[in-house]
């Protein structure tokens, strides 16, 4: 069995546990490579169906091509798309120049919090991977969030032999992470194997740069690269020692630990 099949089997198992145990389940989809692989794995787990809504937390600062891609796949794959936005913060002029952590908290963390509260979701599936950054390396597959959406990393539940935390007090919810064991290179290998449609922002389209990680336009920067195909990307990743999220501004200093403790993805 190859290693992609092993990763797929584990992710599919997690998806099915989530679907069985959570009545009000939803999945975050940012249209990036990871959450699109996540979406594909959901279709694997449920034999072509996606039996829960997909949430997109729209900061309004996303790259326009991402929205087109979102709407196209939602149509073709018959997805139930739910869009959340912190309209109040946007009306009050929230943007990244007010501070990156402040902006992320308002437009992503708080927007997600509002959406979870409004819809009463008890399980949220996310595409975070352990190899992205340090705090995500310490996550569980099933990770509880308290009433204030906060993550208590000191008291994480034990996870034994594919037995996960699937019961929880009212008012709290569980974050579910089926991609935890995947690396960036695995994601691209899987996109290649399964022929999953992805945005060409990840490729060099002639100017010698590409996006390695996608976020909001003001806070995401392309890297120098001549990778024009998935093969090129995989070859590039085999040799790089640059961090994947080097182009993501909120990772500077202790940004991610602070953000994630408060409920960031």
């Amino acid at each position: 069995m190859n290693h992609l099949r092993q990763l797929e089997d584990q992710s599919v198992y997690i998806f099915r546990e989530a679907y069985k145990n959570f009545d009000n389940l939803a999945m975050l989809w940012s249209m990036g490579k990871d959450s699109t692989v996540l979406l594909w794995l959901a279709r694997k787990a449920f034999f072509g169906h996606v039996p829960f809504p997909l949430l997109h937390v729209d900061t309004s600062y996303k790259i326009p091509a991402m929205i087109e891609y979102r709407d196209r796949l939602a149509r073709e794959w018959r997805l139930n798309l739910v869009i959340g936005q912190n309209k109040q913060a946007l009306a009050e002029g929230m943007n990244s120049s007010l501070g990156r952590v402040t902006c992320c908290t308002a437009l992503k963390t708080n927007a997600l919090k509002m959406l979870v509260e409004e819809k009463g979701y008890t399980g949220i599936i996310l595409g975070v991977r352990a190899d992205e950054e340090g705090t995500r390396a310490k996550e569980r597959y099933f990770s509880p969030r308290d009433k204030n959406n906060e993550w208590d990393f000191r008291e994480q539940p034990p996870e034994l032999w594919d037995q996960f935390k699937t019961t929880f007090p009212a008012g709290t919810h569980i974050r579910i992470h089926p991609l935890l064991d995947w690396t960036e290179i695995n994601i691209w290998e899987y996109i290649r194997q399964e022929n999953i449609p992805f945005m060409d922002l990840y490729l060099d389209r002639g100017d010698g740069t590409r996006y390695r990680s996608l976020g909001c336009a003001p806070c995401t920067f392309p890297i120098k690269s001549t990778a024009k195909s998935v093969d090129d990307i995989i070859e590039e990743l085999r040799h790089t020692t640059v961090a994947e999220r080097a182009g993501r501004a909120q990772d500077e200093g202790r940004g991610m630990e602070l953000l994630r403790k408060d409920g960031y993805m």
């Binding site: 190859n2 290693h3 992609l4 092993q6 990763l7 064991d181 290998e189 290649r192 194997q193 022929n195 195909s229 998935v230 093969d231 995989i234």
Partner: peptide, 12 residues
């Protein structure tokens, strides 16, 4: 898109 297979590796 290329159809070359990923190198057969395993995870431990």
């Amino acid at each position: 898109m290329s159809t070359t297979q990923a190198k057969p590796t395993e995870t431990l």
